[in-house]
Design a protein around this nucleic acid. Sequence first.
DNA 1: TTCTTATTTGGCTATATTGCCAAATAAGAA
DNA 2: TTCTTATTTGGCAATATAGCCAAATAAGAA
Lengths: 110, 110
Amino acid sequence: MYQQRKTVLAARATVLKAMAHPTRLYIIEELSRQERSVCDLTAQVGVDVSTVSKHLSVLRQAGIVSDDKRGNQVFYKLRVPCIMNFFDCVESVLAARSQEYAQLMEAVRK
Amino acid sequence: MYQQRKTVLAARATVLKAMAHPTRLYIIEELSRQERSVCDLTAQVGVDVSTVSKHLSVLRQAGIVSDDKRGNQVFYKLRVPCIMNFFDCVESVLAARSQEYAQLMEAVRK
DNA sequence: TTCTTATTTGGCTATATTGCCAAATAAGAA
DNA sequence: TTCTTATTTGGCAATATAGCCAAATAAGAA
């Protein structure tokens, strides 16, 4: 594997890794509907505000969200809406997985 | 955030997390072209065969690849080709990110 | 100014991940 | 059978991640 190829793959992995957390997926979905302040998101998610802030920092550094300070609040919005298109495919992975699981369970019963 | 919602998001995160590694992205791309044995992939990737085997295990458990044992070799193939569609979007995230970086650098120079 | 609210950052612990080596397992070949 | 090849598994050390609390910072309000 050549060095240049490695760099590209590492960059892609960073974006995927930034998405790969339940709370961050929740935030992404929420921001796909409308921009939100850290405070709003914290109330919805139900973890410490410092944790939400750090999750937002991960998403911002990955280039997935952008922030906009207005008054003493910071509003975040989804920068790349195409991300939402991916979930259909992810669901098909999950469907294939659970189908396999169901078949396995049926085989075990016999 | 309700419990059921959490479960769905955690399942999605598992799939994304399984993708979120340079070597595994390489494997996914390679398998999108043709099925490959562990041995083939190891030669291409250039890490220990046990490491490749563990990466494949992560992808299999996530439902992204499936395996097929023939003789003393195990062939892996991509189970969900729609995954490849996502990379265009990931590239757009990276493009936005590096554009921002370029603009920042320009601003610093002034 | 002081007080309040919103957000970020530092520090800590617990947990998860990565990648190697060595060993175990499996399938053929000799 | 023994030898070779292919793959997986267990164990370990190094590193990364997640979440909390406390403290720092920033913007308004009183």
